[in-house]
Amino acid sequence: MADLRQELKEKIIEQLNLEEFTVADIADDDALFGDGLGLDSIDALELIVMLDKDYGIQLTDPKEGKEIFKSIAILADYITDNRAK
């Protein structure tokens, strides 16, 4: 699980061009949206594509994303339970 959390942080920094952040700056429970990392709706689209491409998870209900993308810890748990690859 720790490896997956590390992997997700690296992917988020790279794919969302978060040049100001390092992996060490992102705590497992930090909010990804709003006051945390400050991600927005376009970033959410990028995360949905990443889930599909890298883990074989297709989110069909947008409301689902709101819960799943709350933090790295919650996202990693969801991927572990639902991944197809």
Partner: peptide
């Protein structure tokens, strides 16, 4: 590279 499966939203927009 993604075999026409995934469109990256930011660069497309």
């Amino acid at each position: 590279s993604n075999d026409e499966q995934f469109l990256t939203p930011t660069s497309f927009i």
